[in-house]
Design a protein around this nucleic acid. Structure first.
Length: 614
DNA sequence: CTAGGGTTAG
């Protein structure tokens, strides 16, 4: 690509320089002018093709060839510099404009304002705007649109609405672009009512809505779940002879996928084709994602392959999502196949390798995981995240020493372990029964100024409970309360469970009531911990009360929960209530787990009474 | 000017 452009440049330059000896000054001038027009047109085309780098290097080349810029080429260049995020460029380019003895025009200013606002420096953009007006330049509609657009992209829809009003007052007629920017921003702020209001206003002012206007509104309505209104708007636009385009259809397809109605989404594609709208990569990627979301890995893979066959390249993200799903469904080798395909197609995997490595870890295929890791090391693309994944993989495969070794070699690779690294390894050490090392590492983590998060605390509290060190558990709990961490239900669940295991019944009950005082809503795990603990202590009536309480607060018991309480009653020979609960459970369509059945059978041997009851 | 979107620790 670069070569072709250089060639094009050489041809241009040649046409400019190879003036025949006899040509007059005016002939040279007109040839120069023609060259510049062609050249600028070429630069614009490159911008449209997002070849900003090429514009940049081409401009440098013509400068070197002694061909001066004009204000048009400089304006294009300003645009490119902003696009490529060259910092503080506005000053140097204005310097350049002046150096060439050129006068900045309104396009120069508008482009600079746009560049600043797209960088998120909307207030600097406004200053620039004011300065421009201050030195006597008259903003045009496009200048205003750029400012309005800036505020919209900056999430300041309300400011944009104000600006729109101001424009009208100053005698500028906002066009469809202005309205689209504001309507879209309002929709993204979930202010669809206001957006629809503006839509009515624009029609009243005689500005015709187009497919983009409708698509934005439909998108906004869909995101709010107002599907009927979205459909009504779709009908309205079709009634006005405005055809939905690929964007409109993709919005609808995405909405259906989010509602898990992927097959309906797929039938939308048929409608698209019937209407002569060509589905694009986003259309198919959306469906692929929808299928992944449903766990339909095989179908997703098939569609992905179909995309590739049609030469419609899915991008890294779509590949990554698919790999994640394939792995979760146990199709790791298919995941590997996708990575190979990506490489073959020249799509650079990013965290893809990490996902794949995690998948191998999940299935304890540590050799394959290690292979990927080593490859990343060789390619120099390992980062802390990769270490975390592999450390996690090793300890879950009961190879904690490998985890520790990886951790220890991080510094010499120039990598600083983060809180995830510490949490993962500490958890692994606890699980491997290496309590002391776990505690040492925790101290290490604190002394290194590592930020302790809720997960750190939950791992440590869990560990302390397991050790029976309730003092330590409470110390940690207090430390957590004193830090600015948000209250977390899981910590309470762990503590309640720990208290019961240590037979501190009253402490457990206290925690359970504190939970309500703190405004936390217990979940199924909390209730299971309570019921299990109370049953173990033979406090069956209390357990039963808690069990019934669940339904009251809208936390419906699941099959696991039923099993816990039934087993509790069976172990304490409260057969009537166990039977009643089994009946209830079956009535709800749950089935008992193996342990409960075993227990029933075991009791059967000793008690004919149960047999009769059942 | 409008559409999709990924990874590690409880």
């Amino acid at each position: 690509m670069g070569t072709i452009q250089s060639l094009a440049l050489l041809l241009f330059a040649n046409c400019f320089h190879s003036s025949s000896p006899g040509s007059t000054a005016s002939q040279k001038d007109s040839r120069f002018f023609r060259f510049k027009v062609e050249f600028n047109r070429f630069l614009s085309a490159l911008v449209k093709m997002k070849q900003h780098h090429t514009v940049f290097s081409l401009s440098k080349t013509i400068e070197l060839l002694g061909i001066p810029h004009d204000i048009y080429s400089l304006n294009i260049l300003i645009n490119c510099f902003y696009y490529l995020h060259v910092v503080n460029f506005d000053f140097s380019i204005l310097g350049k404009v002046l150096k060439f003895g050129l006068e900045p025009d309104i396009v120069t200013f508008t482009t600079s304002i746009n560049g600043l606002s797209m960088k998120g420096q909307i207030y600097e953009a406004v200053d620039f705007f004011d300065d421009m007006v201050g030195v006597g330049y008259q903003p045009n509609l496009h200048t205003y649109n750029v400012i309005v657009n800036g505020f919209c992209k900056f999430g300041k829809a309300n400011v944009a609405v104000g600006l729109l009003k101001g424009m009208v007052e100053r005698g500028y007629d906002p066009n469809v672009m202005t309205y689209i920017a504001v309507i879209d921003a309002l929709c993204k702020d979930k202010l669809v009512v206001e957006a629809l209001d503006l839509f009515t206003q624009m029609i009243q002012r005689g500005v015709e809505p187009n497919v983009v206007t409708y698509s934005c509104l439909i998108h906004g309505l869909c995101n709010l779940g107002k599907h009927n209104q979205a459909l009504a708007l779709l009908k309205k636009m079709v009634g006005q002879n405005i055809s939905p385009d690929d964007f409109t259809f993709n919005i609808l397809i995405n909405t259906l996928c989010k509602k898990r109605l992927v097959s309906d989404a797929q039938s939308i594609i048929k409608i698209m084709v019937q209407r002569g709208v060509k589905p694009n990569a986003i259309t198919y990627s959306t469906i692929v994602h929808g299928l992944c979301y449903l766990g339909k890995a095989k179908e997703a893979l098939a569609l992905l392959n179909e995309m590739v066959r049609q030469n419609m390249s899915p991008n890294v993200l779509t590949f990554n999502i698919s790999i994640g799903t394939l792995s979760k469904e146990g199709m790791v080798s298919e995941g590997q196949g996708i990575v190979d395909l990506m490489v073959k197609r020249g799509i650079k995997p990013d965290c893809t390798y990490n996902s794949l490595m995690d998948a191998y870890c999940l299935y304890s295929q540590m050799n394959d995981a290690r292979k990927i890791f080593d490859m990343m090391v060789i390619d120099g693309i390992v980062y802390v995240f990769c270490y975390n994944t592999l450390i996690n993989g090793y300890y879950k495969s009961r190879r904690i020493d490998n985890s520790k070794k990886l951790f220890d070699e991080m510094p010499q690779k120039g990598l600083v372990p983060n809180s995830v690294t510490f949490n993962t390894l500490i958890k692994g050490l606890w699980e491997a029964g290496r309590m002391q090392t776990a505690q040492e590492l925790f101290k290490n983590m604190c002394s290194h100024g590592q930020r302790l998060n809720i997960i750190t605390f939950s791992i440590m509290i869990h560990g302390s409970c397991k050790l029976g060190d309730l003092n330590e558990a409470f110390t940690l709990f207090k430390a957590m309360e004193n830090s600015n961490l948000e209250l977390d239900l899981m910590i309470y669940n762990i503590l309640i469970d720990g208290m019961f295991k240590a037979r501190k019944i009253n402490n457990a009950k206290d925690l359970f009531s504190i939970l309500f005082e703190k405004g936390l809503q217990p979940n199924i795990f909390t209730y299971i911990a309570m019921i299990k603990g109370l049953c173990k202590e033979g406090l069956l009536d209390e357990a039963y009360k808690v069990f019934r309480e669940m339904e009251w607060v809208g936390c419906l018991p699941d099959d696991w929960c039923y099993d816990v309480i039934i087993q509790g009653f069976l172990r304490h020979k409260d057969v009537p209530r166990a039977c009643q609960l089994i009946k209830e459970m079956v009535g709800k369509g749950f089935s008992t787990n193996a342990t409960t059945i075993e227990l029933v059978i075991h009791l059967l041997h000793n008690d004919d009474h149960i047999l009769r009851k059942l």
